[in-house]
Design a protein around this nucleic acid. Sequence first.
DNA 1: CATCTGACGGTAACCGTTTACTGAAACACT
DNA 2: AGTGTTTCAGTAAACGGTTACCGTCAGATG
Lengths: 356, 356
Amino acid sequence: MPRRRADQPGASPGEERRSTIRDVASRAGVSVATVSRVLAGNYPTAPATRSKVLRAVKELDYVVNVHARALAGVGQKTIAILTREVVTPFYAMIIQGAEQQAAQEGRLCLVCTTRSEPDRELAYIKMMREQGADAVIIVGGVTETPEYRKQLVQYAQALNSAGSHLVLCGRPGLGEDVPALVAHYDNEGGAYAATSHLLSAGHERVMYLGGIPGFTTSEPRFVGYQRALADRGLEPVMYRGLHGTDFGYRTIKGLLQKGPLPATAIAAADDSCAAGAIMALREAGLRVPEDVSIVGYDDVPMAAHMWPPLTTVHIPAEELGRTAVRMALHQSAPTNRETILGTHIVVRSSVARRIA
Amino acid sequence: MPRRRADQPGASPGEERRSTIRDVASRAGVSVATVSRVLAGNYPTAPATRSKVLRAVKELDYVVNVHARALAGVGQKTIAILTREVVTPFYAMIIQGAEQQAAQEGRLCLVCTTRSEPDRELAYIKMMREQGADAVIIVGGVTETPEYRKQLVQYAQALNSAGSHLVLCGRPGLGEDVPALVAHYDNEGGAYAATSHLLSAGHERVMYLGGIPGFTTSEPRFVGYQRALADRGLEPVMYRGLHGTDFGYRTIKGLLQKGPLPATAIAAADDSCAAGAIMALREAGLRVPEDVSIVGYDDVPMAAHMWPPLTTVHIPAEELGRTAVRMALHQSAPTNRETILGTHIVVRSSVARRIA
DNA sequence: CATCTGACGGTAACCGTTTACTGAAACACT
DNA sequence: AGTGTTTCAGTAAACGGTTACCGTCAGATG
């Protein structure tokens, strides 16, 4: 039963119908096959025909319908990037790297924000399966619950059986038998290095500040901190709870109201936490790094422009994103499903030697 | 001519074929129409049939093919966001707002980064036309050249004739007769207010720092600055050139090497420029705001956490993004094609009264 | 001059859905 | 029982492309 084929006169006035390959064909006086072939350029066509078609295309301002094309099996596959949000510079940088690589490989990128809602995340994954995306990359850590994990495993399998890949970027893998790729970085090593840096500057009471217990990025950082302390037989002093500037600010401010800081140095869970802490210290009349030393984590762009410039742990965020895309696209061998990038400390001016 | 229909035995081993509505239908022992209707839920179905279908769907792990669905006319439309990049917090915030609104309206968002390359931008616009996106939102300013402008006008028309919209977000419109929506903010007013703030604190030599001449966001800011000065009969002192921390840092540092700063206050083209300037001032032993006052522009999250906390011009970035999406989706009346959001100064601690 | 051979263009099957239309039961009425 | 209504399922025509297959016609070859 014909449904519309809006060729009757008196078509709706406002809405222009998008021109199809058939329109082009009839305008050029050839068949649709010829138009398709001229556009694809994968079949011999007489120069005269060719130019007739191209002229018609230009006149009608024709663009192919990707849906139809995809349905016919020649789909331009896309890569989806799922992230909590884009405003956090760390995520933004990963995304930037991923998009660069994707662009280089001729892929279109879909960035979707999930706002930490597992439901939204899962909904997007489903959407991507429908779209037929050839990879979905999940960016950033998460607080893992057993149910969430189970869901993810299931989706990894579903994606896999549909011929596409799930890539976990900046988050640990799901286990040997789960068909997911992993592009991760060394959280624990960075924290160990940062804490050691403080320690070797003579500090003996080093506080760990911030981080969400159970969060996949926080936990290993905390472990690295503990290990560095344990290696020298020192006791941890920790104030964990949340990420972000506010937490750092409020925690240090509260501590300072109760008395002197129970540490001479702070290892912050991330740069913004460090920024908050510095603010609170400064408001209380303490100097950084003369009175209190501090290191951050992430090396966001702001870190270099803070006062004092923040010593922190650099994560190769852009490279991480790029790696994720590369893995997704060229994952030929089933081996090497996991790439761990190194982290390193970048020393600036927020740490001072402790004079004993 | 049958092409594949992979039902022959001995199908390729590695690649699973994605199951179709036909597979579900035959497994459930009903017709494809019935499956479609059960899934859509817009047509009466007997409970028994219903559950048979649902079971088959679950067993085969079936998801609809969006391309086919779109082709059949029930497309989930998407909205595309084009931006230079995502790492600049100002853009990130606009994007965040846009995505929030889009999610609220049940739309999927495509974020694409153009890296300032007009070619890439134009290529993405074409891609979006193919996709049949129902709006493309271009975020952020640009240095307009006549050719670029002409191209954009052409694409606005093409998009419009395909029934979708072009929205310029944070950038001025293209003229009365061009079918583009505009969600913009008051650049000039903000700069006027910021400069006036400095002026009414007693400063008489106020320097304008940064901004790219000809850039759509820079130019009006500079005009606002000039107007504020002119209103009091003062002469402008300007060092323009680029956006960003580096420019601010290098310019002020260079100036300071040559002698005392030719101003007692700085109106920066943006917050990061201000951050760079502060750094250079500090390195030269000058205090902010005691020796030099400064105001920024944009009110990025960092501004509140800088030292000193930066007085700056707030742009309702998230609301700007939200507005863009709302306009794109509900643009019913052809009037009101342009929304200009207000900007206002937020005073923190980077401006001090000048003691005459 | 007959036949072969490419080059080129058209015809139509197919991709996976949606949905108007048709038809067949089942039920409710006279 | 005969007829009118529902209720529910199936058939098949689009949607807008791609491409295998098959003609046709011109030039090359024997």
